[in-house]
Amino acid sequence: MTAPQTAIPVGATVILASHNAKKLTELQRIVTAAVPGLAPEQIISSAGIDLPDVVEDAVTFEGNALLKARSAAAATGLLAVADDSGLSVDVLGGAPGIFSARWSGRHGDDEANNDLLLAQLGDVPDAHRTARFVCAAALVAPDGAEVVERGEMVGMLLRERRGAGGFGYDPLFQPEGESRSAAELSPQEKDAISHRGRAFRALAGHVAQLIGAAG
C-alpha cells in the first residue's frame, strides 16, 4: 500500500476522493446526512490528503468512479468513496458524458465548458434541449469489497446561465418539474433531487453495512 504524504486523522473511517473542492463539499454534506451513525469526524476529505493521481481512462462513469475509489482505498487503508459524474445531452447523443469536466479542452474550466455547450445548442429548439445529469458513486473497502450505485437528474438546458450556486453545468440545467436552474436551488433542495444525492443515498446502506462489519 502506498502511504499518503499527509497524516490521516485518528478515528477516520471513510475518505471522500475527489480533486474538485466544490464537489467534496457537496459529497461531505450528502454522505453525512445519508449514513446513520457516521459521525462527521469519521468522514475525511481528500483535500487534506495527498492521494496518487488517477488516470481516468475508463469509458463509463462507473468505471472511472471505481478507479478513483480503488486508488484512495489502497493509499489510505480506509473505506473510500468516489464518484464520476457528468451531463448527458440527448441531441448530442449523450455527450459530453464522461468528458463533461473537460468538454472545452481544459479540465475543470466551467465557464468555457458552458460557453461551448451553449454554442453547440444555439439552434436547437427548446423541445429538443433535454438532458440529464448522471452520477456513478463507488465504494471500495481495503479488503477489495466494492459496490457502485447510479443516480440521474432529468431536465432541460436553458439558453443562458441562471443562478450563482452549484458548479459545473448547474447554471444551464433546469431540473424536471422545476422553474429554477440547478444553480438557483439551495444546497438542500439540490441534494434532494440531484444525481449525486440519489446515487450517494443508494450507497449509504452499503457504507453503513461495512462500517458495522468493521466495528
Rank of each mutant, 00 (worst) to 15 (best):
M1A: 14
M1F: 08
T2F: 10
T2E: 09
P4Y: 10
Q5V: 15
Q5L: 15
Q5N: 08
A7K: 14
P9M: 07
P9I: 09
V10D: 07
G11F: 05
T13A: 11
V14C: 08
L16I: 13
A17H: 13
A21M: 04
L24A: 11
E26T: 14
E26S: 12
V35E: 02
P40I: 09
Q42A: 13
S45F: 02
D50Y: 10
L51W: 07
P52T: 15
P52F: 15
D57Y: 09
D57P: 10
T60K: 11
F61I: 15
E62Y: 14
E62P: 13
A72F: 11
A72K: 05
G77R: 10
L87T: 10
L87I: 05
V89F: 09
G94R: 06
P96I: 11
I98A: 02
F99H: 08
S100F: 10
A101K: 01
R106S: 04
D109A: 09
D109S: 10
D110F: 08
D110V: 14
N113V: 12
L118Q: 02
L121W: 00
D123I: 00
D123L: 00
R132W: 12
A138Y: 08
A138S: 06
G144E: 07
G144L: 07
E146K: 03
E146S: 05
V148A: 01
R150Q: 04
G151S: 06
E152R: 10
V154E: 07
L157P: 00
R159E: 01
Y169A: 03
P171Q: 06
G177H: 10
S179W: 12
L185Q: 00
Q188D: 10
S194P: 02
S194A: 01
G197Q: 12
A202M: 08
A204S: 12
H206M: 01
A213D: 05
G215Y: 05
